[in-house]
């Protein structure tokens, strides 16, 4: 579906994502708390956005026409912080201050103290509403900015998520792209065993979105879907990205226990060893 992306560029993005995953492990281990599972699942989506898709400039972070990313699943803050550091928005040494007193790197992202972060998020179902407001604002102001909202699948159980999505569809916000990190797991188990959200793609379609289903760890598919969203000029786009919670670390993959638990020092060392090789923890 997408434009041709050189294999070398894909390899670069994969390498960047691997470094971000390593940082997520280091950061949450140092903090002793945090959400590694949902950070590792969303890493490839964030990497594609920050290093390829978004029209942004770390040297001019407030440019009015910049694209905007809202991390509505604010608990993936470690992934965003790590990506921001690799993208030149944060000094790398600051990453290990995650969740510490006085740090800019709050447990959930804080707009008021960080560049690039457009919206402070944490309570689920709120960032998506702010993103819809931003998309309306950009259209009303005649700005070419595009707005990208990254939501979680547990978040799809929250009513206001659907209120916001309904508004995005109603107002035909074609400058809005919603990316769902569909890792299938929330804090206490699988979404389908707790409160099922399927058929999720049908739901987005019923809410008047152009929908795409992709493998959220395959950069060709991610970038192809984002390109298709750009070509969709009459309605917003929802990308359902199938992902693996804890992606890249064998003992975290597919385990909801790693939603909100930091690795011990030994676990972190093992995770970092697994994340040294390009193949990661387990084959795709």
């Amino acid at each position: 579906m997408g434009e041709e992306i050189p294999a070398g560029r894909i390899a670069e993005l994969e390498a960047t994502a691997r470094e971000i995953r390593r940082d997520i492990i280091r950061m949450t281990a140092a903090a002793g708390s945090g959400q590694p599972g949902g950070s590792l699942s969303v890493t490839d989506l964030l990497t594609a956005l920050l290093f390829e898709e978004l029209r942004i400039d770390p040297k001019n972070p407030d440019a009015p026409d910049r694209d905007r990313l809202v991390l509505s699943k604010g608990h993936a803050a470690p992934a965003l912080y790590a990506a921001l550091s690799h993208r030149g928005y944060l000094p790398p040494e600051e990453l290990l201050t995650l969740r510490q007193f006085g740090s800019r790197l709050q447990g959930f992202v804080d707009r008021r103290h960080l560049p690039f972060v457009e919206a402070s998020t944490g309570g689920l179902g709120q960032g998506i509403g702010m993103a819809v407001g931003m998309a309306l604002d950009a259209r009303l102001a005649g700005r070419s900015s595009r707005i990208y909202a990254v939501i979680g699948d547990g978040e799809c159980q929250a009513g206001p998520t659907w209120e916001a999505l309904m508004a995005g569809g109603h107002f035909r916000l074609s400058n809005l792209v919603v990316l769902l990190d569909r890792n299938g797991l929330e804090t206490e188990g699988s979404t389908e065993s707790i409160l099922g959200i399927e058929p999720i793609t049908d739901k987005f379609r019923a809410f008047r979105y152009h929908t795409l289903e992709i493998d959220g760890h395959d950069f060709r598919q991610i970038l192809g879907a984002l390109a298709e969203a750009r070509r969709t000029t009459d309605v917003p786009t929802a990308i359902v990205a199938r992902t693996v919670k804890g992606k890249g670390v064998s003992f975290m993959e597919g385990k909801s226990a790693w939603h909100g638990k930091a690795p011990s020092r030994a676990e972190a060392e093992q995770a970092l060893r697994e994340l040294e090789s390009p193949s990661g923890g387990s084959p795709r």
Binding site: A119, M130, V132, M134, D137, E163, A164
Partner: peptide, 19 residues
């Protein structure tokens, strides 16, 4: 007029204001 969704009216209003 966003209909009967007061909570999301607040989040949308916030997003609308931030620029």
């Amino acid at each position: 007029n966003v209909g009967v969704m007061e909570s999301t009216m607040m989040t949308m209003a916030a997003g609308m204001s931030l620029s």
